[in-house]
């Protein structure tokens, strides 16, 4: 959890903004540090978290989270964290290896009409259950890392958008919780304007949907040791009269944190 980012976003573990749909995106850079931030942030805030990890294994996320001061193993044993090992499960489904419970969630990879309904139902069930048990003071949270992997696995943009819509309707509106998703844009530019199945199309559609967008970009001038890139924070201003507002920061990621500063004010420059 990065304290600096919290102050920029005007939030803290004691005061979690509800009903947020946060979209993280990156282009020629790595936004996973933000994802780790939100994971540790919501766990520290005491929220029930459902994490769909399509990119890394549990031990990887655990190793990173430990540096940020959160123990995922403990959280999982307490029942605060539901971790979906989607990386292993989807590979297993592809190779037709196992028939475990988790693998059934990923049946969409085989079914004739691919839709993510089973995954949604699982997420929804695990988070609704939490609300029944615990006091509803802390909202449930869904984190997906990352949606563009689904595109690579052959799921259509439409099916992914249906999934996120249902998650938003169920988690943000009904359970008063939050959703955090990551989308990676790897295409060089927008030359595939008419390509229906591109990650940039998914990103644009999710931008319409989200309430807060953090998009990470590499520096145009290339790699730099002291500035790792820039992040544009965009409060979309949907819903409760929040004005749309955009701010750009440059950042540097450290071992156990990250610093954010206005463009051009890096300590290496001044």
């Amino acid at each position: 959890m990065f304290a600096e980012l919290n102050s920029i976003l005007n939030t803290s573990p004691d005061d979690v903004t509800q009903r947020e749909f946060i979209l993280l995106s990156d282009r020629k850079a790595d936004a996973s540090f933000l994802l780790h931030h939100f994971l540790s942030f919501y766990l520290k805030a005491g929220c029930k978290v459902c994490f769909v990890g399509l990119v890394q294994s549990f031990s990887h996320y655990n190793a990173v989270a430990q540096r940020l001061g959160v123990n995922l193993v403990q959280a999982r044993e307490k029942g605060q964290l539901v971790f979906v090992e989607a990386l292993k499960a989807s590979a297993a489904v592809m190779l037709n290896e196992s028939s475990s419970d988790v693998a059934q969630l990923f049946d969409y990879l085989r079914s004739p009409v691919p839709e993510l309904r089973a995954l949604f139902e699982f997420v929804c069930a695990s988070l609704s259950q939490a609300e029944a048990e615990a006091d509803s003071s802390s909202p449930p949270v869904l984190i997906v890392d990352d949606l563009s992997v689904l595109l690579s696995l052959g799921v259509s943009v439409r099916a992914v958008l249906d999934f996120t819509h249902y998650c938003q309707a169920a988690i943000c509106s009904r359970l008063q919780g939050s959703v955090v998703t990551l989308v990676r844009c790897d295409d060089e530019d927008d030359d595939d304007e008419d390509d229906d199945e591109s990650s940039s199309r998914l990103l644009r559609a999710l931008t319409h949907q989200c309430t807060l967008s953090l998009s990470v970009k590499g520096l145009q001038t290339g790699y730099c040791r002291d500035i790792h890139g820039q992040v544009e924070i965009w409060w979309r201003g949907t819903g409760e009269n929040v004005q749309s507002q955009r701010k750009i920061f440059q950042y540097k990621v450290y071992d156990k944190g990250a610093s954010f500063f206005a463009p051009g004010t890096s300590s290496a420059v001044l």
């Binding site: 819509h165 309707a169 509106s173």
Partner: peptide, 9 residues
């Protein structure tokens, strides 16, 4: 048609 546009739930 917001909460359940496809009849999933």
């Amino acid at each position: 048609a917001y909460t359940d546009p496809l009849g999933w739930t």
